[in-house]
């Protein structure tokens, strides 16, 4: 479990690092937020890939949000994914984009649905994709035993499953002894 204060402190540290890296994470503020604001941070990113060499590029605009989920007492990663024409990228496409090495072998259809689905945004109340938070607490507990930058370690572990890229600059800038390899840990999105 993470307390709200610990999360606030981790967000402040993370934003300081992000500013030095220059990748655009910022605090989200909006006047029409009625619910208590759990210090949401956001970053936009464009994802472009070609399925084959001569195919037109497949472009997705991502908008990533991290906020504090009070029920599970952990940070949670939410995101929207749109095409250049403004249409939503369907969930089934996003399920296919999850790199296979991040899912356990013989991953069942069900497991993908338990990992990533569409929900009502807990703060903005629009539809949004969400990585489920039930496995996060155990993962963060492990990370915090060796990493001071636990929010960064968590985000860089779960993010790639949904296209979020974090620059290697984070590792270079922050003290190398803070960011130990997390390869030895069970991955948080595998159950």
């Amino acid at each position: 479990m993470t307390t709200l204060e610990e999360y606030y402190a981790a967000v402040a540290d993370f934003l300081e690092l992000s500013e030095r890296v220059g990748d655009g994470w910022s605090r989200f503020s909006s006047e029409d937020i009625r619910s208590p604001c759990f210090e949401m941070i956001r970053r936009r990113q464009t994802h472009s890939r070609r399925l084959t060499a001569d195919a037109p590029p497949d472009i997705i605009f991502f908008d990533y949000h991290v906020y504090f989920n009070e029920a599970f007492a952990v940070p949670q990663l939410l995101f929207s994914a749109c095409r250049p024409d403004g249409s939503l990228v369907p969930l089934t496409t996003l399920h296919e984009l999850i790199p296979k090495h991040l899912l356990p072998e013989a991953s069942e259809r069900e497991l993908v649905w338990e990992t990533l689905s569409q929900i009502e945004h807990p703060i903005l109340h629009c539809p949004i994709y969400a990585l489920h938070p039930c496995q996060t607490a155990a993962f963060i507990r492990k990370i915090r035993s060796f990493s001071k930058s636990w929010l960064l370690s968590w985000l860089s572990s779960v993010g790639p499953a949904v296209g979020l890229e974090l620059s290697p600059q984070y590792g270079i800038i922050s003290h190398t002894d803070n960011i130990t390899s997390i390869n030895t840990l069970e991955h948080p999105i595998s159950t």
């Binding site: 969930l91 259809r109 069900e110 649905w113 338990e114 689905s117 569409q118 929900i119 489920h132």
Partner: peptide, 10 residues
């Protein structure tokens, strides 16, 4: 049904 089940269970 998968989407509805996933929403309900979460």
């Amino acid at each position: 049904r998968d989407a509805m089940e996933s929403y309900f269970m979460s």
